[in-house]
Simulated assay, not measured.
Amino acid sequence: MIKIIFTFAVILLLNSIIYSQESNTFKDKMDNYTQKVKMKWEFNPLKNYETDRYFSGWVDPDAYSSRFWLGDVLNIDRMYNNDHFNFDKMDFYYQPTLATEVTPIAFRYNEVHRFKIGIGYLTHFFLSKYKKGYDQYYGQSLMYGTYMQVEVFFDYIFNNTFKLRFSPLRHICAHISGDILGDETLYNKEKEDFKDSGFEQMHVSAYYKYGWFTFYGGMNFAIIGFDKSNIVNLFSAFAGTDFRVPIWGEISFITGIYLGLNHDLINNVSRYANGQKYYINDKHVEWIPEISVGVGFEIYRVIIGLKYDYGRSKQLYAYKTMESKIGLDISLYL
């Protein structure tokens, strides 16, 4: 008897839902109801190209976009100040970047409000290519190091024109590559101070789309790792803009500029033999500018352009120096 009553109640509920929709056919009533339910929550764990590309600065060095840069580091010899690197034998320098965002929690409210909780990941790889017929014992390609950034973030997006991002925790670390550590002519651990970088930040930023323009800016604050790292970005403020002009179909002309100011803590670090403890020999702070400009073409999810970057080197070995580079950049928005 209970099963019969339950079945009858389910039939009545379905009948009420379906026939409450204004339509001519039974199929249309079912389709309309399905669409109405789906509109209550739009789930997409990946980036939405049509809207979210305007909330990620193209020339922003910390943007979570995969890219491949190839060009020339204009002051590489002053960054390393070591004849054994044989910079005169280099053909070119290149920097692959693996980066993306994943937002497993994403929903819409009242059509114009979007909320996202996700994780951003970025790793830069710094390499150079020796000329044909020349190499060192590790081969024709020299890897200088890696730089990694990962964070958890909360996004609020209004009407697909404004985005506010808050990241309570961003981890940053840099590492010297095995190519340098394995060659004592390049890096002598007995004579040079121990190099290590790893700290946590808090991040907040805002983006606004106005026609063909995107304006953005933000700040970062260090929250931990002050006495265990050669470099700690205590505070930074940045601002930038992208300018897109539609040309034909999915092809647009794009140009951008990024300006930043960093307040960095520079430590001279020693550690005990067991590698578990750190000792700060001396420390000082520096204010460092950062600039990045670019011009190119955007084709759907790909941007191909010429970029110039100037700022503190993210290569851990050369973290005390400024890096000036220019080259071809291919960015992929995934």
Rank of each mutant, 00 (worst) to 15 (best):
R165H: 06
F166K: 07
H171W: 12
C173P: 07
A174V: 06
A174K: 01
A174E: 09
I176T: 01
S177V: 01
G178M: 09
I180N: 03
G182Q: 12
D183I: 08
E184I: 14
E184Q: 13
T185C: 03
L186K: 06
Y187A: 07
N188F: 06
E190N: 12
E190C: 08
E190F: 11
K191S: 04
E192A: 08
F194V: 08
K195R: 10
K195S: 01
D196K: 06
D196Q: 12
G198N: 04
G198R: 01
Q201W: 04
H203P: 11
H203F: 13
V204T: 07
V204P: 02
S205I: 09
Y208R: 10
Y208I: 14
K209C: 03
K209M: 06
Y210A: 07
W212Y: 14
W212L: 12
W212T: 14
F213R: 00
G217Y: 03
G217M: 03
G218I: 09
G218S: 04
G218M: 03
G218Q: 04
M219S: 15
N220D: 15
F221P: 07
I223V: 07
G225Q: 03
G225S: 02
F226M: 09
F226N: 05
F226K: 00
K228S: 09
K228T: 10
S229I: 09
S229Q: 08
S229R: 05
I231T: 07
V232C: 03
L234K: 13
A237S: 14
F238I: 11
F243Y: 11
R244Y: 15
P246E: 11
G249E: 06
G249F: 00
E250S: 15
S252H: 13
S252P: 13
S252K: 13
S252M: 12
F253H: 04
